[in-house]
């Protein structure tokens, strides 16, 4: 069992090499430092658009708009000379690390890791929202009926202490227990599939997750004791984002990405059975019928307008997860999908 997955082969060696180089320079006494500053602030597009693009997502139906585009090869057909790679990673932090390191060009994930990255000047913006989903806090323990019962009872799994799920839990804790950090010490970082297994085997008191995992857990006999819409209202769950520097040199690709997501969402909304069939390729243990049910559930809406960023940012600032509440308009690239976002 893995508690959380490390991004494979994260090239964190770059600063180490740089240190060694500079130490060597300093020791030999020549300080003419010609700093190796690539990936600077001002985009340098002299190399033209990227020839290799990696798009990363996390496990779950929240990424359905991207996964349908992947299945339909929408982007691959549109950019035949670009090598497009799809990767699944377990947390927003892992995707962010990959993007900073230059391994990933397009990331996707929940509101919170995006805001944390924005706050720490990663230099990224939202291309499009993916959908709105109500995230459920699931438990199998019959004695746990509310957050009060959960306190001190055991571990609560979610993708990370920075995940959107963790912010939902804290908001719920603030409302129900009077202390946003009341359950912090019970948080354990797990990807959704690991969390589902751990909940089933009784290692967890609760799991704050997303579709289809919350549905699967419900089928396994778990109940929801809190959800994100109750505390934050309707909000975007996941969105796709990229570095401003990447967008500057690859604006065609970025707008195509936004268009592809819109197309996917249209398919999901108009022909959910067809969409579910495509998605069943991605979710081996989930029959198309179940997927269709999840896609058409009441508290799920496949809409690209990013909603709730301001609300989340306000709360995250309040509890110290970010330093400043950004202007909503600064968060989004200007396009049809993000128009009217907040």
């Amino acid at each position: 069992m893995r508690i959380f997955r490390q991004t494979p082969g994260r090239p964190r060696t770059a600063p180490g090499v740089a240190v060694a180089g500079v130490v060597a320079l300093a020791l030999t006494g020549c300080g003419t430092g010609s700093g190796s500053g690539d990936g600077g602030e001002a985009a340098d597009c002299s190399d033209g658009p990227a020839k290799e693009i990696t798009i990363a997502h996390q496990p779950g139906l929240g990424y359905a708009p991207l996964l349908i585009a992947k299945q339909q090869k929408t982007l691959e057909k549109r950019f035949p000379d670009t090598e497009i790679t799809w990767r699944e990673l377990d947390s927003g932090a892992a995707i962010r690390d990959g993007m900073i390191a230059g391994d990933i060009q397009v990331g996707s994930g929940g509101i919170a890791p995006f805001l944390v990255g924005y706050d720490t000047e990663v230099g990224w913006k939202i291309v499009t929202g993916l959908e709105k989903m109500n995230l459920q806090l699931m438990t199998k323990d019959p004695s746990i009926k509310s957050l009060k019962d959960l306190r001190g009872k055991g571990k609560i799994a979610m993708p990370g202490p920075d995940s959107i799920q963790s912010v939902v839990l804290r908001k719920a804790a603030e409302e129900q227990l009077g202390d946003a950090k009341a359950l912090d010490s019970q948080i354990v970082a797990m990807g959704h599939p690991d969390g589902r297994q751990a909940l089933a085997s009784g290692q967890l008191a609760a799991h704050l997750t997303s579709p289809p995992f919350q549905g699967q857990e419900k089928a396994d006999g778990a109940r929801s004791i809190a959800n994100s819409y109750d505390v934050f209202g309707e909000h975007t769950f996941n969105s796709a984002f990229t570095m401003s520097s990447f967008e500057a040199c690859n604006s065609q690709f970025v707008s195509a990405l936004a268009g592809a997501v819109t197309e996917s969402n249209r398919l999901i909304n108009n022909k959910p059975a067809e969409a579910a069939k495509l998605l069943s390729e991605e979710f081996a243990d989930e029959p198309a019928k179940e997927i269709e049910k999840d896609l058409t559930a009441d508290d799920v809406e496949f809409d690209t307008t990013p909603v709730g960023f301001g609300t989340f940012a306000g709360f995250m600032k309040e509890i110290g997860l970010i330093r400043e509440v950004p202007e909503s308009s600064d968060l989004f690239f200007d396009n049809k999908n993000t128009a009217g976002g907040n």
Binding site: A18, V19, V22, V23, A26, G33, G39, T120, E121
Partner: peptide, 22 residues
């Protein structure tokens, strides 16, 4: 002191993503 100096110096030459990591 020399090592710390070299360390501090190394951060001056970093920009963008590298600066994020150092």
């Amino acid at each position: 002191v020399a090592l710390l100096g070299a360390w501090q110096l190394s951060t001056l030459f970093m920009t963008g993503a590298q600066a994020q990591l150092m």
